[in-house]
Design a protein around this nucleic acid. Structure first.
Lengths: 234, 234
DNA sequence: CCCGTATATTGATCCCGCTCAAACCCACGG
DNA sequence: CCGTGGGTTTGAGCGGGATCAATATACGGG
């Protein structure tokens, strides 16, 4: 297999604190794999054979309930680790990750994780950070789902997407991968119908601009006000 | 300060893989503090000065929204670590933890965390496990809040409480700390009124037995069926 | 270029669970 | 022993958002 250059990963926060020699050492065990749009990288309940760093593209991570309903856990952007089930002591993946656009990831076999942390302890510390941040995010979502009405949850979801994967365009900030109304619904615990109605209303007010699998935020500030402000009707 | 005996913590999973000498080393930096019923151990947004292991009692961890609504994040039982904000790179606690009964915890200053992991790398691995499990739990709650109706969510919450903190009594399994309808409502994103109605209905059917800040599960299996089964109305 | 399919919009209706309101009950302190 | 207050129960009514249904629109493939 072709040798991977450490410049690929040198700047990623997960590898911060590692010497160039350490990076070379890590990369010896990695291979780079391409996942065309739509293809699953791993699937829920499958044995957690590998863990990954996304080099290019975007993934959608989703959980499916026994009765077939889907919940979007998160979107993965370039530079992030994902599929770290092995590191947190799971033998199976808790969700499915699929490419939403053609993507490329570095792949390590889960089996070498113990050896890796033993040799590079700061890896465990960095991953702990990452998992900790995700725990925070998850708790934030729990609070939102438990206390906020749908419109505010959708506003929060869009703002988070914009921050994480927003690209500046003439008209505002665009989510830079294809995302459907259904996706937004599955992120916020509602239906595509309700999301569509909300976006239409916002479009009338000039807050966003819609399209097929495309969302542009024209007025982030007004959206923020909806996310944080109004409902307290006192 | 009195020396703490390592038998206090030797069996806890967070300290698995540590030699007795390591435990003694850890305990040198710890002190044991008593928190009477109702007293907060730490509060949301406060600087994360310490991290903890609960030796005795139970805590309720809650997040408060800007508009004053409360969400119960979890209950802490004896033997668990909590307040590990420092380990995941936070400088402030993301929630408030209060004693629901008189409790005792081991307390370490957050400042020594870096030194501790450097000296005992398996600590980071163990904490990573713990945080990973919590991430799983949080995602489970997200899925429940996003897809299940209230009755199922309450059933799931009670079953989880029973598994985590259930005590066998003649009549069934009792949650072994005082828990109000309001608490259950704040765990499941509903109102105490709805919880009260649901519990009353279940009591009529002989599934549970209620009381002031007291819940006994008489028929876990039937409760499980409610949690998993019915709503798919196909 | 046209068709087929996936995505999106919009209307009409229904119902779960929230809100508002009023008792009630028990534990506890004075 | 009675009064007080926190926890609980129960009723009545409404509304946010789901469901059901139909149409519109855009993209990809042959």
């Amino acid at each position: 297999m072709a040798a991977l250059d450490r410049s690929l990963v040198a700047d990623l926060p997960i590898f911060s604190g590692l010497a160039p020699a350490d990076l070379d050492d890590l990369l010896r065990d990695a291979q780079s794999i391409r996942y065309p749009k739509g293809v699953p990288v791993f699937t829920q309940d499958e044995e957690a054979h590998s863990f990954f760093v996304l080099l290019h593209g975007n993934l959608r991570v989703l959980k499916v309930t026994p009765d077939g309903q889907q919940v979007v856990v998160r979107f993965v952007s370039a530079g992030e680790v994902f599929g770290v089930a092995a590191a947190i002591g799971r033998t199976a993946y808790p969700a499915t990750a699929s490419a939403v656009v053609d993507s490329i990831a570095l792949v390590w076999p889960s089996a070498i994780w113990p050896r890796l942390v033993a040799r590079h302890p700061s890896l465990a510390v960095n991953i702990l950070q990452t998992v900790g941040n995700r725990l925070q995010d998850a708790h934030t979502r729990v609070v939102e789902l438990a206390t906020e009405e749908v419109e505010r949850r959708v506003a929060h979801a869009l703002l988070r997407l914009a921050k994480q994967s927003g690209r500046k365009v003439e008209a505002g900030i665009q989510i830079d991968f294809p995302i459907s109304r259904q996706d937004v619904a599955e992120m916020t615990g509602t239906t595509l119908h309700t999301v569509s109605r909300i976006l239409s209303a916002w479009e009338d007010r000039g807050l966003v601009e819609g399209g097929r699998q495309r969302i542009v935020i024209r007025d982030p500030h007004k959206l923020f006000l909806i996310a944080e402000g109004p409902p307290p009707k006192d």
